[in-house]
Write a protein that binds this DNA or RNA. Structure first.
Lengths: 199, 199
DNA sequence: AATCAATTTGCCCATTGGTACAATAGGTAA
DNA sequence: TTACCTATTGTACCAATGGGCAAATTGATT
């Protein structure tokens, strides 16, 4: 596996090398990245957000330089920035001078295909999307036979008209079932239901 | 660093002490906590959710008793309860009689500022938060900046009106972006797009 | 026999969603 | 400069959606 650090900070280079205990190839700037040399699946790139061009990091996260896993480092990390970077495709976001322990854990998590997110952000996610983790089995059990059928078609993205044709009933009846389903799942429309079912 | 276990279960006290290999101070009940003695930054509190007052655990998670890191233990853990506790501020949630290995890992992660989250839950959150996975990358890459923004809101289930408000543009412009997105993803509507993104 | 839940449908209405046919403006590349 | 892309917005039309009100049917239970 190929690991690369992109930072012009000597102290950060030393810190990371000491923490991970291995030799780490380093580039002072993303500009020095040879355009011919694209990253490959499994490559790991640590990038210092403090002294790099944000647009280039962005492109890095979006895999413009190849499918590498990207960990963004910052000396002033914020949840807001974390959302941005992770949303752009970064696999991790943390303080540049995190403890060696944290850096090692981050690498372990990211290498095994995970994401490293800060505590605050994680809690935000839990608070915001908390409903998704709740088992729908109980809810599904509360549906009638026909309502469950409708849900099956819904999950396939069918329109009311199509569901009606498939189930050989009128479109109005489909709506009636939907209204009942929405009430039992405590949602307002099919979109919210799909999200709740996590399709 | 100060570590405390709050549980009236003798077997749990033994199990945790054996797993962590250190002496752990124990309180049978949260009620026994001296109100004068507040937790300090870095303190670690394991709490047994099975035989404690939920409201008190809640206050503990919300740092009402000081800025301690809280790990909630349960003999019947569920993803649903996990999001609840993590959303309230807990740093970890796992089975009370997890293997010593798991308990040690949990402590290591939490002590270094991380959260301990079950695999299943993490996958759900990641899936919902934004699929950093590969398949859509090619398609997402073809979107413009604004179009990508719209997609983010779409994935949260927002209506055109809401997206317009969030992005501070007219609803008509949102529709324009959507039409462009649908064309690039070769879908007919937002439902199909969500399914294609496998939300 | 009466009751209840489930299923079905019709008519009607308000809101939302998708699109056709435009226009204006800024930036970039040939 | 011209051509193209992007972002923005308008008007308008039609389809899709969600739901209120009302009612008929059926099977199971009491």
């Amino acid at each position: 596996m190929y690991t690369l650090l992109i930072s012009s900070s000597i102290s950060l280079q030393d810190h990371l090398a000491a923490a991970l205990g291995t030799f780490i190839e380093t580039l002072p700037s993303l500009w020095d990245l040879p355009t011919s040399n694209r990253f490959r699946q499994g490559d790991l790139v640590w990038v210092d957000a403090d002294n790099q061009d944000p647009d280039l990091i962005k492109r890095l996260c979006k895999s413009d330089f190849g499918p590498a896993r990207v960990i963004v480092l910052s000396s002033t990390p914020t949840d807001s920035a974390a959302v941005d970077w992770l949303g752009l495709g970064a696999a991790g976001y943390l303080h540049a001078f995190s403890t060696p322990e944290t850096l090692r854990q981050t690498m372990a998590v990211v290498e095994s295909g995970g994401l490293w997110v800060g505590v605050g952000l994680m809690q935000q996610l839990c608070a915001r999307f908390g409903q998704i983790a709740k088992p729908q089995h109980d809810l599904m059990a509360q549906l009638t036979e026909r309502e469950r059928e409708v849900v099956q078609y819904l999950k396939m993205g069918n329109s009311n008209k199509l569901i009606a044709k498939e189930m050989d009933i009128s479109e109005r009846t489909v709506k009636a079932h939907l209204t009942a389903i929405f009430a039992k799942f405590d949602v307002s429309d099919r979109i919210q239901l799909l999200l709740k079912l996590a399709v």
